[in-house]
């Protein structure tokens, strides 16, 4: 994919035509300076990030301080939008839901992902194909798989209710998506289903860097499986685990697609996350300023979590 360009660069850089040699070599000499080379290398990425993230971010900050609506630029209103959001019971609920959803989904993804990684790290038949198929939930688009789950949870046609009912486990169907608490747990379940493979594969990658000798040695010392995991595997996996958890927390906290498809925030707003509520207010109702303020509430929380985790990682690297 990238080879022609990159190879072209190499060729161009080293075998310059004699006539232009002077100019090119000046350029290459420039690029010998670490500072200049770094600048050149960083420019393309930074340019994209500046134009398409930093600038819109600043604009969004401005929006959040104005009464902008769709088709109407509005005027400066100070922190009125934030104050309104703060006192908004739906937002309070959405915030609580987001924390709940992120926390439990991450806990389950980590626990199950770790377990799965340990299982996949053994040798068994059809290992390749099973490993590959375990990744499926992670790679297919969330909206599509969320639809499959919505169909399985459908109040009238749910296959799970069918199965439980006809096997005599239940006499009335389970209210998967029609009860607020159930629906939120269902969203946690689907998110876990989707994110677990990423945890598993990344942790598996980490596991493969651990030498089996360590385990053998521990086993010889009489450590049982749990002790071997806790004292040998876990400490060595901790750095990887932290990285995955950071990424997962970011993704889960700002999740939108899954809820949008699965429940649309209902029943009775009980499964709104910050992102879906911000979308409903900002986009569906056209209150762009308020929507921006709602979304902005996510930022400090994410920043705090990640900062804390990065700090922790740094400290570990130090040891």
């Amino acid at each position: 994919m990238k080879d022609p360009v990159v190879a072209g660069a190499g060729v161009a850089a080293s075998i310059a035509a004699p006539a232009e040699r002077g100019r090119v070599s000046r350029l290459t000499r420039w690029l010998e300076s670490e500072k200049l080379l770094a600048t050149v290398l960083l420019v393309p990425g930074m340019a994209i990030l500046l134009i398409f993230i930093a600038y819109p971010f600043v604009m969004a900050l401005w929006y959040s301080l104005t009464s902008i609506r769709v088709g109407d630029p509005g005027e400066f209103v100070g922190i009125a939008n934030f104050a309104k959001a703060w006192n908004d019971t739906v937002f309070q609920l959405a915030f609580k839901n987001t924390v709940f959803y992120t926390f439990w989904a991450t806990v389950f993804k980590l626990a199950l992902g770790m377990w799965l990684a340990l299982l996949l790290n053994r040798s068994f038949r059809f290992k390749r194909i099973i490993r590959a198929s375990m990744l499926l939930p992670f790679i297919i688009p969330t909206v599509l798989s969320a639809f499959a789950w919505r169909w399985m949870f459908d109040p009238t046609f749910s296959v799970m209710n069918w199965l439980l009912y006809h096997s005599g486990v239940i006499t009335d169907r389970l209210p998967f998506l029609s009860d607020g608490d159930w629906a939120l747990w269902c969203a946690v379940l689907v998110n876990t289903w989707r994110g677990m493979p990423f945890f598993a594969i990344t942790l598996l990658a980490g596991l493969q860097t651990i030498s089996p000798d360590l385990h053998e040695a521990a086993a010889l010392d009489g450590a049982n499986a749990w002790h071997r995991f806790w004292h040998v595997t876990w400490p060595l996996l901790l750095p990887v685990t932290l990285v995955v958890v950071v990424f997962s927390v970011i993704q889960t906290f700002s999740d939108f697609q899954l809820i949008y498809v699965l429940t649309g925030g209902g029943p009775a707003n009980s499964t709104h996350l910050i992102a879906t509520y911000a979308y409903q207010v900002g986009v569906a109702s056209g209150l762009l300023g308020e929507g921006a303020a709602l979304s902005l509430f996510m930022f400090p929380v994410l920043f705090g979590v990640v900062w804390f985790q990065l700090r922790f990682m740094k400290r570990m690297e130090g040891h």
């Binding site: 993230i53 971010f57 700002s254 939108f256 911000a278 986009v283 979304s295 930022f299 990640v306 990065l310």
Partner: peptide
């Protein structure tokens, strides 16, 4: 490469990852 601000830039790039999409798409 060693240059001034490399650590800051690294963090800055990471932080951009935190900006929620729902915030950006209207200004975008």
């Amino acid at each position: 490469l060693k240059f001034r601000g490399s650590e800051f830039l690294g963090t800055a790039i990471f932080v951009t990852y935190l900006v929620p999409q729902t915030l950006l798409f209207i200004p975008l």
